[in-house]
Write a protein that binds this DNA or RNA. Structure first.
Lengths: 245, 245
DNA sequence: CGGAGTCTTGAGCCCGATCAACCGTGGTGG
DNA sequence: CCACCACGGTTGATCGGGCTCAAGACTCCG
């Protein structure tokens, strides 16, 4: 745990207009409760499944994912976490993490004091509502994943996932010059979509050959949003504005 | 929309010790914002997918479910809703329902004023936290469903579902004399587990024949919790105490 | 240069989907 | 009263999407 390296007023996330702004009063309140930043390498365990975990973080930069595993090692990735997402809210509510969280790329986490949630709820009701918004949004994404895994074919799932990632990262300005660096392997994609690694590979190639996107060297480009949406059968508009906690 | 039929102090849910109690002050606050009760028949649409929906309800009695559908009609049931669950929180946060909600049995819903959420957050921080707890809990359940659908075999999924329903309803005291009336068809089970109707039927019979539970005439009994947990590969402890909003 | 991790491709098989009946029950209208 | 039908459950037969097993290629790194 490092000392606070950046004042919250200068927080990179706070500059972006996808995030709703807080009042100066709120920002200094958050600042006072910021314990520090944590930097973790790719593959690091941020939260261990089943462990007691009462710390709350905001993901400042990098990619991570939530996941659950069965006794014999089968793993399901529940959701991808991107900058601005909260880490450990669920765990905090139950005093125990019912899922694990792992870093995909190098991540920077912003850590808060143990009572931060409670302090926020007592002091700034509108920020409390923002936190609840974030929880609801994470559920919304999980809902979509469940629809995909339960009812879409492999190709449709893949189309949904690529489009989902593309739009979320585009909102966050992670797409530069039409290209997105993807810090994930095909094994991750398989575990997100409930497919085997081999079939994931073949499905991915099929969509690439159909010209729906380009993916090479860990970079995604030339995403045909309309084509993917058509293949995925039903698409929801983006959620552009979101609070920053 | 009917007039309030029962005072909140007499609310059946509030008597049960699975629900954390509120102060008298809070109860009268809720009472003042209760618009009335709605009674709907089995199969009724409580919330329409994609529609604007800014009303919040608590499910007082009966069963319902959240679901999403694809353009061609394929449907995924996301979660079962039981007494005490909130209906429409997600929809409220996004001013639009990203999933539908449908009644399984006759249901009684307790409706609140449009600003209720905001009022609660401003007035009773601890109740606001309870709402967030409920949101997190719903996500936790969806997470488990996603793990099942993504990574468990048909038999394992079925084992998970039966046990999941059994334990949730037992907590709510819906199990009487070891028997639970199940207001769901095999088609519902299929849509929860991401299976076809035919395969759902065969899987169900296989587990019955293995003596893991009895299910006939819409009643579930003789549930072998250990056997089911073993088959489902990994099981989490129950969450006994929960807030009542 | 060896080894680990990731991606790719081939071959065969099986779990679960699909198609198609049939049964029992309960409601409904002639 | 009963013919009819809708709905839920059941069963058989066949098909195919996706899994498994196996091996090879490529890249990066120590």
């Amino acid at each position: 745990m490092l000392p606070p390296s950046a004042p919250c007023t200068k927080c990179r996330l706070r500059q972006m207009n996808v995030f709703a702004g807080n009042t100066p009063e709120q920002v200094s309140f958050i600042q006072a409760r910021k314990v520090g930043e944590v930097v973790l390498p790719p593959g690091a365990t941020i939260l261990e499944e089943g462990q007691k975990a009462d710390r709350l973080f905001t993901l400042l930069s990098g990619w991570a994912f939530r996941h659950k595993t069965l006794a014999d090692g089968r793993r399901q990735i529940l959701n991808i976490l991107l900058p601005g997402d909260l880490v450990g809210l669920q765990a905090k509510m139950f005093d125990q993490a019912h899922h694990g969280v792992e870093a995909l790329s190098e991540v920077v986490l912003c850590g808060f004091t143990r009572d931060h949630i409670w302090d926020v709820f007592r002091t700034f009701p509108d920020m409390a509502l923002d936190i609840t918004w974030l929880a609801a949004n994470e559920e919304r994404i999980t809902d979509e994943a469940l629809l995909s895994v339960g009812r879409r074919t492999a190709a449709e799932r893949m189309a949904w996932l690529v489009l989902h990632i593309w739009q979320r990262t585009e909102n966050l300005d992670l797409v530069r010059d039409g290209a997105l660096p993807l810090p994930i392997t095909q094994a991750h994609i398989a575990d997100m979509l409930g497919l085997s690694l081999v079939h994931t590979n073949r499905t991915l190639q099929a969509l690439r050959r159909r010209g729906l996107f380009e993916l090479s060297g860990g970079t995604l480009r030339a995403v045909d949003e309309d084509g993917l949406a058509r293949l995925a059968r039903s698409w929801e508009k983006r959620i552009p504005i979101r609070p920053l906690f």
